[in-house]
Write a protein that binds this DNA or RNA. Structure first.
Length: 608
RNA sequence: GCGCCUGUAGCUCAGCUGGAUAGAGUGUCGCCCUCCGAAGGCGAAGGUCACAGGUUCGAAUCCUGUCAGGCGCGCCA
């Protein structure tokens, strides 16, 4: 059920009829013709730009064509009046029955109302979070997580076959650093004095003794203590040697490989728990280690066969010269052939693959799995990486796959309008889990979706819990809760009234004649096209604004009853009117619940 | 120096992929409600859509250039 699509179909048929009658020429392109809600409700229910778009190919003046179309359009059942306005708009007013059909469809379909088939079950891969498995998720990850999850929900509702994916960077130098950090915590358990994490001198001399004098000890957070503890319980002191002077470290090769595996495993568990707290459950976790073992060599050879890889020397970036620049021959991918600014290195000087190489292989793997539409959600600091990745996807799929990247800007954590000071070193940086504990998963999810991702966002711990109109999260929840409270009140005030789904479906909807009721119904009719537009634009935040608009219209309608008791939803002496209004209230509840479901947010029946 | 993102009311932000008189919240000002159907209602003021060109029936939206802010710029992921 999509009223706008139905009316567009009426319009298309009208144009075809006029073509058959010779009024319009054949071969008109109707794809850009729209049927939309007008900006101003006084213009009518819907407006179309058809006459303005078709006037040129039809060889007619826009207003003349509009007159012809308007006349023909009034022949359809759904269309009550069609008037020409402005430069050639055709404003439509719909028959009352058209609106009633919408309302009944909502009651019948429930939260499936708004489901679309524009996706046609096409496969889409949405990759998000993909944080390095080196620690718990923090607030910076939360936005990408929520945006990716909501976009997935949106595409699912729009009829796509969606795969929600996490790319696990379980290889590379950061995982080495994690291994070292866990080893230090492990040694700390064996001898807390000798291996204190605060003893910079001890750390430095230890690194030197291990043959890695330049290595810094990263990841000093306490979350690694239980990991080291678990390691100790599994291995005892076998990963260290006991000398005359207490415990000493073993040669790196003996402990680093097993500890890396152990630590990544534990970190991934930690991250999955964090995601669970946010209500996120991704379908596929792909390991970089596995991709390197099974895919990189193959795709590199494949690209080499096509002369897309060569040995060469890059020019230094103009304007900004790194001090230590020296010309260096490296293995390069011809990214410039696919729209990137420079060719990009695939191998480090020690011969191992760069992250880019494994990422190429990974995206190629997605293509092999049938995902030719790929969406990645990244932090804005990775913006410089977008073009090369798109170039690589195009190259490795021979142009069959396309990647879009959504960049999420920073989230500033605030309290009462003041930025909160966070520092990793001091250990008071806010984890995702802290955030959820503080305000709840649904508030976090919804609030992070109230702004388009490419704009920075302030997350104010106090403001998000305020119960006022300027808090979108509250206002939408309140509308849904109010919808339930109306039904609770109906049960008290008119206990004999049958408000079952069947009774609501049979209500006399002609009794919904108030302007504020029509306004609500008009918005409800837009829900399917909001879903489709948001899905095509890949912009879940539009759902938040729609829900806010719907909540506003609903609260506005409710408020009418304050001025005039005859407009209150429940009229004890008029069951027919009450039932019709309750039917509309129920429909509002359904659509809000349907929208919140896209966001993975639970609708509430009562405010707390 | 180059690339990407951003620039809309005092403030925080929408603006349906090019449509009609650019919207909402907040703040300011004025009225109402002081209610119990829970956390408010009505109205006013407030704009050179950063700036300058261009495309066309029509531009906040598309193109070019300029300015300002953010991010990034050869073996980190």
């Amino acid at each position: 059920m999509n009223l706008f699509r139905d009316v567009k179909a009426d319009l298309d048929r009208t144009v075809e009829t006029l073509i058959a009658e010779g009024v319009l020429p054949e071969g008109l392109d109707l794809s850009r013709v729209t049927v939309e809600p007008p900006r101003d409700a006084s213009h009518g229910d819907m407006a179309t730009n058809a006459a303005m778009l078709l006037s040129k190919p039809a060889g007619m003046k826009p207003r003349d064509l509009a007159e012809k179309l308007a006349e023909a359009l009034t022949g359809h059942d759904r269309i009550a009046t069609a008037e020409v306005a402005g430069p050639g708009f055709i404003n439509l007013r719909l028959a009352a029955t058209a609106w009633h059909d919408v309302l009944r469809a909502i009651l019948d379909l429930g939260t499936a109302y708004g489901d679309s088939d524009i996706g046609a079950r096409r496969k889409v891969n949405v990759e998000y979070v993909s944080a390095n498995p080196t620690g718990p998720l923090h607030i910076g990850h939360a936005r990408g997580a929520v945006v990716g999850d909501a976009l997935s929900g949106l595409l699912l509702k729009a009829g796509y076959d969606v795969c929600k994916e996490y790319w696990v960077n379980d290889a590379g130098s950061q995982i080495d650093s994690l291994g070292w950090a866990v080893y230090w915590r492990y040694l700390e358990i064996l001898d807390p004095k000798k291996f204190a994490i605060t003893d910079e001198a001890a750390i430095k001399s230890f690194m030197a003794a291990m043959g890695a004098p330049d290595r810094e000890l990263e990841y000093r957070g306490e979350y690694l203590i239980p990991v080291a503890q678990a390691l100790f319980e599994e291995k005892g002191d076998a990963l260290a040697v006991k000398g005359a002077d207490g415990f000493e470290g073993k040669p790196v090769d003996e402990w680093l490989p097993p500890i890396r595996l152990f630590a990544v495993d534990k970190m991934l568990d930690l991250i999955k728990d964090d995601l669970k707290v946010l209500g996120i459950d991704q379908d596929v976790f792909t390991s970089e280690r596995w991709i390197i073992e099974t895919h990189v060599d193959r795709i590199v050879a494949w690209l080499k066969d096509r002369d897309l890889i060569y040995r060469g020397i890059l020019e230094p970036p103009k304007g900004q010269k790194p001090d230590d620049w020296e010309p260096r021959e490296q293995t390069l991918f011809r990214a410039t052939q696919f729209g990137d600014d420079v060719d990009r290195p695939l191998q480090k000087s020690d011969g191992s693959w760069t992250y880019f190489a494994s990422d190429i292989a990974y995206h190629w793997n997605k293509h092999e799995r049938g995902y030719d539409r790929q969406i990645n959600i990244w932090g804005a600091d990775h913006g410089g990486y977008v073009k090369r990745m798109q170039a690589a996807v195009t190259a490795a799929s021979e142009g069959k796959a396309a990647l879009t990247v959504k960049l999420c800007q920073m989230v500033r954590l605030m309290d009462k309008g003041e930025p909160m000071k966070m520092s990793k070193r001091a250990g008071n940086f806010v984890t995702l889990r802290d955030l959820v504990d503080a305000v709840g998963k649904d508030v976090v999810r919804f609030y992070l979706l109230t702004r388009k991702p490419d704009a920075p966002l302030d997350f104010d711990l106090t403001a998000v819990k305020e119960q006022s109109r300027d808090n979108m999260v509250f206002y939408v929840h309140y509308a849904h809760a109010r919808g339930h409270s109306v039904f609770r009140m109906a049960g008290e005030q008119v206990p004999d009234l049958d408000v079952s789904d069947a009774a609501l479906a049979a209500a006399d909807l002609n009794l919904l004649s108030e302007e504020s009721e029509q306004a609500v119904l008009r918005l409800l009719s837009e829900w399917p096209r909001v879903i489709e537009a948001a899905a095509e634009a890949e912009e879940p935040h539009r759902i938040a604004y729609y829900l806010y608009d719907l909540a506003s219209a609903f609260h506005g309608w409710w408020s009418k009853g304050k001025e005039d008791t005859a407009l209150r939803f429940i009229q004890a002496d008029d069951p027919a009117v009450t039932l019709a209004r309750l039917a509309l209230v129920k429909a509002v509840r359904i659509v809000i619940a349907s929208g919140l479901a896209v966001f993975g947010v639970e609708p509430v029946e009562e405010l707390t």
